[in-house]
Design a protein around this nucleic acid. Structure first.
Length: 138
DNA sequence: GCCAACGTTGGC
DNA sequence: GCCAACGTTGGC
């Protein structure tokens, strides 16, 4: 199982909406590197749900329930999306400031490539971030 | 609201 | 294929 982090501006699509809808297609990715990451996602992979711009923190955990298929919101180009299911909220949201201050996260793609909206998370980083956020399997 | 970083586009 | 111009993202 692989781990990821996906970003959303809460104005556009928030964690609350993800929870409300339960399963939701992750659409709108229009960046080649992010697309590559989406394509590599497998059913059962987990991802942190991050609020960019407003909040700037990891607010929850989602799970891939459907692998890459054509993004219905794209009117040209072969863009893809996956379906995500809300697993649960972070008991204690992990902020960007906190992550930037953490030496063990220096090589985390979220920090190094701030504009990438779908980023891979290493097993070690996943475990570390789960510990910081007090994450427990529901 | 501003600005830095960076991806994309288009001229050559 | 290079590079300048431009647009977008996202932190502050």
């Amino acid at each position: 199982m692989a781990f990821w982090l996906v970003k959303s501006e809460p104005d556009a699509f928030s964690w609350a909406q993800q929870v409300e809808h339960e399963v939701e297609p992750w659409t709108g990715v229009r960046n080649f590197q992010a697309r590559k990451n989406l394509a590599a996602m497998r059913t059962g992979d987990r991802a942190f749900f991050y609020h960019s711009n407003i909040g700037r923190e990891i607010v929850g955990v989602v799970e891939v329930v459907r692998e890459a298929y054509p993004d219905p919101t794209a009117d040209e180009g072969n863009w893809i999306c996956v379906d995500m299911r809300a697993v649960g909220p972070m008991p204690r949201p992990v902020t960007l400031a906190e992550m930037k201050a953490d030496e063990s996260l220096m090589d985390f793609a979220l920090i190094r490539q701030s504009r990438l909206s779908v980023v891979p998370v290493s097993d070690a980083h996943w475990a570390h971030l789960c510990a910081l956020g007090g994450w427990r399997e529901p």
